[in-house]
Design a protein around this nucleic acid. Sequence first.
DNA 1: CAACAGTTTAGAATAATTATAATTTAGTTT
DNA 2: AAACTAAATTATAATTATTCTAAACTGTTG
Lengths: 142, 142
Amino acid sequence: MQKNIEFIDKLRSSGLRPTKQRLKICEVLFNREETFHFTIKDLVKKISDNLNEKISLATVYNTVHAFKDKGYLKEISINSDKSYFDTNITNHHHFFDEDTNQLIDCEDDYIENINIKKNITGKKINSVEVLIKVASDNQNQN
Amino acid sequence: MQKNIEFIDKLRSSGLRPTKQRLKICEVLFNREETFHFTIKDLVKKISDNLNEKISLATVYNTVHAFKDKGYLKEISINSDKSYFDTNITNHHHFFDEDTNQLIDCEDDYIENINIKKNITGKKINSVEVLIKVASDNQNQN
DNA sequence: CAACAGTTTAGAATAATTATAATTTAGTTT
DNA sequence: AAACTAAATTATAATTATTCTAAACTGTTG
């Protein structure tokens, strides 16, 4: 569990002012054992569940984008109408449960290393991400 | 190149009435050598470029969704605010050029087979897709 | 503590998509 | 081929996620 003072340093060191709102969002996002996968809506809900004061929607968007730009969050590509974010910023892959719309980290032992044999000429690879869509075994869902 | 009569059969066989609009959209989508990656906006533009008559936006959405449901199109997950569709419905992966926002098919010889060693209990795998984000080699882009 | 740039905010604006309800059309029945 | 019915199309309104705007506020620096 990180302390407030650590968040302040973290923010300052990347040129973000440690405002009340950003610190609250840090607490919600980073004071946890497990990776947090969330949409903006999820985060807004977590904030209003955990805090007394409210943070405006615009600030939540601003902060999430700032955190993403600074590398504290990753944005995950899901076949969807909204963006998912991930507090796990290491290189890793995902399962997406189509029954529940839940994003699940794919541990390293679940998948063999991805080997890109050729690349587009003149481009560098920025990321390689695997998305494994799963659904109930016993039903016909899509 | 497929003929109109083939599209009519194709649509009928999957329980879709071969309407004028759907046939026009079939022509635009499937009468081509290469895979077509597109957003709804792209498709609307192609339609208005190629045809005299106009098709309403709602119909374009309806048709693309119907075609997707019937398996004539795939929807591709991109880190973005809009949906991309693909006329290549085989299992395959993608490059996404972040400079140009272009989606590029990843040929089989570009990537080694993906091997999922473990899966989520009680779920079946519906799809495995790799997205390789690339950008200019000589610039600092993100 | 004054000044200033960086932040927050409510609310408006935008953009993609979906819903609605009236009209039209395709396929079937007479 | 006229009549019927369910499916499809359409213009438009509604919805949803996200971004923009401009005013008010706050953190930092001197």
